[in-house]
C-alpha cells in the first residue's frame, strides 16, 4: 500500500480528521441526528512568561476563555446515542472504538462528559464523539451492542465516575474492589479515612 502524505505535524495528521468530522456531521445531520460540530482552533505555542500573562489577561477580559483542540461531534440528545453509534459504524465506516471514557471537568458542573474516540480503518480517520451526562440522572446507553470493545472501557468509567451504562452485559467493577465507596475520578470525591481497618491517612 502506498504511503499517504497525511503527516502535517510531528504528533500526527490533523487536517484529515477535521475534514472527517465535517463530513460525519453533515451525514448525521442529513439523517436527522442531533449533533453539533465543534471546530476549536488548534493549540498554538506562546513562550512561558508570555503565555502566563496572556492567559491571565485573557481570563480577565473573557472569563469563558477559548477552548482549543481537535474537532469533535457533540451529541445534544444523549438518549439517541445508540442510534448515532450504529450510523457511524454502518454508514460512515467507524469500525473501531478506540476509547470510551468520561470527564468531570468541575465539581460545580451539573454534568459529566462522555467521550468516545473512534477510528475508521478504511478511511484512516479518527473521530471524537462527546455527549453530556447530567450528574442528577447519571445514565447513558451502553455501546457494547455496537462495539464489544466498549465493554471494559465502560466498566472502568462506571466505577470511576458513577455512570450507569444501561444495557451493559456485565456491570461489575473492573479495577476497584467490589466494596469500594465513591467514584475516585469525580472532582467531588472524598478520600476514605480507612479501608478494612487500614488507615489511609
Amino acid at each position: 500500500m502506498a504511503k499517504d502524505a497525511t503527516r502535517d505535524t510531528a504528533w500526527g495528521p490533523v487536517e484529515i480528521h477535521r475534514e472527517a468530522a465535517r463530513a460525519a456531521a453533515d451525514a448525521l445531520r442529513s439523517a436527522g441526528c442531533p449533533v453539533e460540530l465543534h471546530e476549536p482552533n488548534l493549540p498554538t505555542y506562546a513562550p512561558p512568561g508570555e503565555g502566563k500573562r496572556l492567559a491571565k489577561k485573557h481570563k480577565e477580559e473573557n472569563p469563558e476563555y477559548e477552548w482549543r483542540g481537535d474537532s469533535y461531534l457533540l451529541l445534544t440528545d444523549r438518549l439517541r446515542l445508540l442510534e448515532v453509534a450504529r450510523f457511524l459504524r454502518d454508514e460512515l465506516g467507524y469500525d473501531m472504538l478506540i476509547d470510551a471514557t468520561a470527564v468531570d471537568f468541575d465539581a460545580a458542573d451539573d454534568h459529566l462528559w462522555a467521550v468516545y474516540q473512534l477510528l475508521a480503518l478504511g478511511r484512516k480517520t479518527r473521530l471524537t464523539l462527546k455527549t453530556m451526562v447530567p450528574k442528577a440522572d447519571c445514565r447513558i446507553d451502553s455501546l457494547v451492542p455496537v462495539w464489544p470493545a466498549a465493554n471494559w472501557h465502560e466498566r472502568e468509567a462506571a466505577e470511576m465516575f458513577g455512570i450507569v451504562y444501561t444495557g451493559h452485559p456485565d456491570p461489575r467493577p473492573l479495577l476497584l474492589p467490589e466494596d469500594w465507596v465513591g467514584h475516585p475520578l469525580r472532582k467531588d470525591y472524598q478520600y476514605p479515612d480507612e479501608y478494612h481497618g487500614i488507615s489511609c491517612k
Binding site: P43, T44, K52, E66, R68, G69, D70, F105, Q117, T128
Partner: peptide
C-alpha cells in the same frame, strides 16, 4: 501551562495503540 483545551494522541506501541487523552 497549556492553553485550555484537549488533545488525543495515539501512537503505535509494541503492543498496540497507546493513547493519551489530555484535558
Amino acid at each position: 501551562r497549556p492553553a485550555p483545551g484537549e488533545a488525543y494522541v495515539g501512537i503505535e506501541n509494541p503492543r498496540g495503540e497507546l493513547g493519551h487523552y489530555l484535558v
